[in-house]
């Protein structure tokens, strides 16, 4: 057994910088995915047929093809087709945001449909407009039910973010590979970033639990 973490010490700041690099695009992708996902979910439960078809087709495409393929297509095809030199950061946000919105829209749709139909009728009977009803009455109740599923999606996104290393984005994973090839030792840096990913996910889990408790105050 020949584990030697001491050689890695000079590289630690370089790897730690990767935390922010990873978090930065994960956070933006989660926000983008949540907003788009909510809109798609509203399309799916709405009564306007073309929007429903669009949302269904969208979900089918983004769930039906590999994420890494979507990432590559965005990163390589946009410069080829438009001449715009898209950065790895932007490609990553787009690929992850668009992809997770497909999953999130399904989670939210199920959450909305699980809210008692009587809630909608009560709101309608009071003359509350559709938008306000969705925003203030239906979605808050749906959110409470879907929070565990949503946290799951965010955790998956955080971990899967490692595949942006394939387009040369200097995230945690890529940094581990860089250090590995510099030292001719791969195991230690990989183990190290593995620990960091685990900590990130644990942090997210704790955050989710806290949020869940806050939403439970009405029970």
């Amino acid at each position: 057994m020949n584990l030697d973490f001491s050689q890695m010490v000079p590289y630690i700041p370089f790897i730690l910088e990767g935390i922010w690099v990873t978090l930065k695009f994960v956070i933006v992708a989660i926000i983008l995915g949540s907003i788009l996902g909510t809109i798609l979910a509203l399309f799916k439960i709405g009564s306007i047929k073309p929007l429903r078809w669009f949302a269904d087709a969208y979900t089918s495409i983004f769930r039906g093809t590999p994420l890494i393929l979507q990432l590559m297509i965005i990163y390589y095809s946009i410069p080829q087709l438009t001449g715009y030199d898209i950065s790895p950061f932007l490609s990553a946000i787009l690929a992850f945001g668009l992809n997770s919105s497909a999953y999130i829209s399904e989670i939210i749709r199920a959450g909305i449909q699980a809210v008692d139909k009587g809630q909608m009728e009560a709101a309608q009977a009071l003359g509350i407009p559709y938008r306000a009803m969705m925003k203030d009455i239906i979605l808050p109740q749906a959110l409470k039910n879907i929070l565990p599923a949503l946290m799951n999606e965010f955790i998956t996104l955080t971990k899967e973010s490692a595949i942006v290393s394939t387009i040369g984005y200097l995230d945690l994973m890529r940094r581990a590979q860089v250090v590995g090839s510099d030292l001719f030792r791969n195991f230690e840096p990989l183990l190290f970033v593995g620990l960091i990913y685990w900590c990130l996910v644990m942090g997210l889990t704790v955050l989710g639990r806290m949020f869940e408790r806050r939403l439970k105050q009405s029970d």
Binding site: E121, Q141, S218
Partner: peptide
């Protein structure tokens, strides 16, 4: 309504 349908989160 028969089943009240109060808004449970308010």
């Amino acid at each position: 309504f028969q089943h009240f349908h109060l808004f449970p989160h308010l």
